[in-house]
Computed example of a mutant assay.
Amino acid sequence: MNTIPSRLDHLVLATPDLAATVAEFTRRTGVTPAPGGVHVGLGTRNHLVGLGGRAYLEIIGPDPEQPAPAGPRPFCVDGLDRPRTITWAISPPDLDRAVAAARASGYDPGDVREMSRRRPDGTVLEWRLTDGGAPHPSGLVPFLIDWGSTVHPSASGLPVTPLSEMSATAPDPDEIRPLLAALGTSLTLAEGPVGISFRVDTPNGPVTFT
Rank of each mutant, 00 (worst) to 15 (best):
I4R: 02
L8Q: 10
D9L: 11
D9M: 12
V12E: 01
L13M: 12
L13N: 03
A14I: 08
P16A: 07
D17Q: 05
V22L: 06
A23G: 13
A23L: 04
E24Y: 06
E24N: 10
F25Y: 14
T26K: 03
R28S: 13
T32G: 07
P33K: 01
G36M: 06
G37P: 01
G37A: 12
G37C: 08
T44D: 00
R45E: 00
R45D: 03
N46E: 02
N46L: 06
L48V: 04
G52Q: 12
R54I: 04
L57G: 04
L57K: 04
L57C: 06
I60D: 05
P64S: 02
E65L: 12
Q66F: 03
Q66D: 09
P72D: 15
C76L: 11
D78F: 07
G79V: 01
I86L: 13
T87A: 06
W88S: 09
I90W: 00
I90R: 04
I90K: 02
S91Y: 01
S91A: 15
P93Y: 13
L95M: 11
R97A: 15
A98T: 01
A104R: 10
G106Y: 09
D108A: 08
G110Q: 04
V112D: 03
V112R: 01
R113H: 10
M115H: 07
M115I: 01
R118I: 15
R119A: 15
P120A: 00
D121T: 14
T123L: 12
V124Q: 13
R128A: 12
L129G: 00
T130R: 04
P135C: 10
P135H: 07
P135E: 01
S138H: 04
V141H: 11
F143E: 00
L144N: 06
L144W: 05
H152P: 04
S154G: 09
S154A: 15
A155G: 01
S156Q: 15
G157L: 07
P159L: 12
V160A: 06
T161K: 00
L163C: 02
M166N: 00
E175P: 09
E175V: 06
I176N: 08
P178V: 05
L179M: 14
A181S: 15
A181Q: 14
A182F: 10
L183H: 05
S186W: 07
L187H: 12
L189N: 08
G192H: 12
G192Q: 13
V194A: 13
I196P: 02
S197F: 06
R199K: 12
R199N: 05
V200K: 06
D201E: 15
T202S: 15
G205A: 08
P206C: 06
V207G: 03
T208R: 14
T208S: 14
